[in-house]
Write a protein that binds this DNA or RNA. Structure first.
Lengths: 219, 219
DNA sequence: CGTACCGTTGAGGTGAGTCAAAGTAAGTGG
DNA sequence: CCACTTACTTTGACTCACCTCAACGGTACG
């Protein structure tokens, strides 16, 4: 990206701090620009026409959000909620558009980003009714690996989920009671340990092998 | 779009005819360009890692497909199968890219299209495990309305689905036996009539009212 | 030390899957 | 045009995974 563009964006952007539970934008809001998460974690939550809520994405610092609605020229399809203390940088939509117009390479980059983003598509695998909940939960752990987990020296995966049970359950379309039972099952089989909002997976290969996934992939 | 661009595209494009059952491109194929369906209907089918198939979209003549994978620079995420006799026009990817580079307005148009396309997102509503299958099926009818249905003079919706039961069932993640029972139920309640691959909905308002949807929307 | 809220556990119900078989439509070959 | 095969659809009986409801235990917070 050109220096002029960077200067322009730096001039227009502004940063806001959010505390856990506060929302950055709401479903049905008109989009005004793009948000870049500088620190902390966010949750994207969707309310369907029945009033049921579905969490479909955890956003980690360094990621951007809001561009889908901006480019689609449609209201936000989800509400973004801070899971922890967050610094969010906002760039107005008109700046983005000006930059795209002056730099074709940027247009390609955004096209690629938007096309690659599966958005709520993630949910397809996570929520497929044909898969038993245990499998869906393991998929969720796989999905959250890059966002909420660290690999310890001994090869264990350590998740620091900032979500409570009901929110985790909502990601895979089940009830928190059912999640409790799944967790209990995994714990009993020594596949994972759960203490509060922390999850430890002693042998990731084994766990993800259960659903036919080999790890090296960095999706 | 400029005349020069149109000329360039016309020079590069080529049309191919397909018969029912033939596929236009396969999942995992590298994308080479964009396809425009000039006549007929297509089905987009996805195979997941378990070998289960999911149909997630019916494409009607006039619509284009394949651009998501092209812009994402990733293999096709689905297989496109002809449901009827189809004429498909192919435009190579490099032509599209050249046109975008020379016309910023086209870049915005594509950004909008890609951002709006929910792709397999449609599936989220159609496949949500929390919704009973009857509701999901009515959602499916709502979704297929613009693609496979006509409104008769008397206000009845007449669907000409080119799909067999198992393929319909696959769109909402259920088994064909279950679909049979759902159909039977709707038939008994006079909400719809099913003869072979044709569906007649005598009172669309009533049917879609069941899932809390008012019709006028043209999504 | 209470009040909430969150999480777990248990009992019971049920919607949808599975399996098997019958019924129906669509091809195929004589 | 009619037997024959093959594929699709429906029906029934059964099972089970998950939901629901309800009660209980933990933990956070004032």
């Amino acid at each position: 990206m050109s220096e002029a563009g960077v200067t322009k964006i730096n001039a227009a952007r502004r940063s806001v701090h959010y505390r856990p539970g506060e929302s950055i934008f709401h479903q049905h809001d008109q989009p005004h620009g793009i948000y870049c998460l500088e620190s902390g974690h966010l949750l994207l939550r969707h309310f369907d026409t029945f009033g049921e809520q579905t969490n479909f994405q955890v956003v980690k610092y360094g990621e951007t959000l809001g561009w889908r609605s901006l480019f689609a020229e449609r209201p936000h399809a989800a509400t973004a909620i801070a899971l922890s203390r967050c610094d969010v940088c906002f760039v107005p939509g008109w700046v983005i558009k000006e930059c795209i117009d002056s730099e074709p390479a940027l247009a390609h980059a955004f096209l690629k980003t938007v096309a690659r983003d599966r958005g709520p598509y993630e949910a397809l695998m996570l929520r497929s009714p044909r898969l038993p909940v245990r499998v869906r939960f393991i998929y969720l752990l796989l999905y959250l690996r890059s966002r909420c987990a660290n690999l310890s020296r001994s090869g264990m995966l350590v998740y620091d989920l900032l979500l409570q049970r009901r929110d985790i359950a909502s990601m895979i379309g089940i009830r928190s009671e059912t999640l409790s039972r799944v967790i209990h099952g995994l714990e009993k089989e020594k596949l994972a340990r759960f203490k509060g909002r922390q999850i430890v997976v002693p042998d990731p290969e084994k766990l993800f092998g259960l659903i036919g996934i080999k790890l090296p992939e960095n999706d």
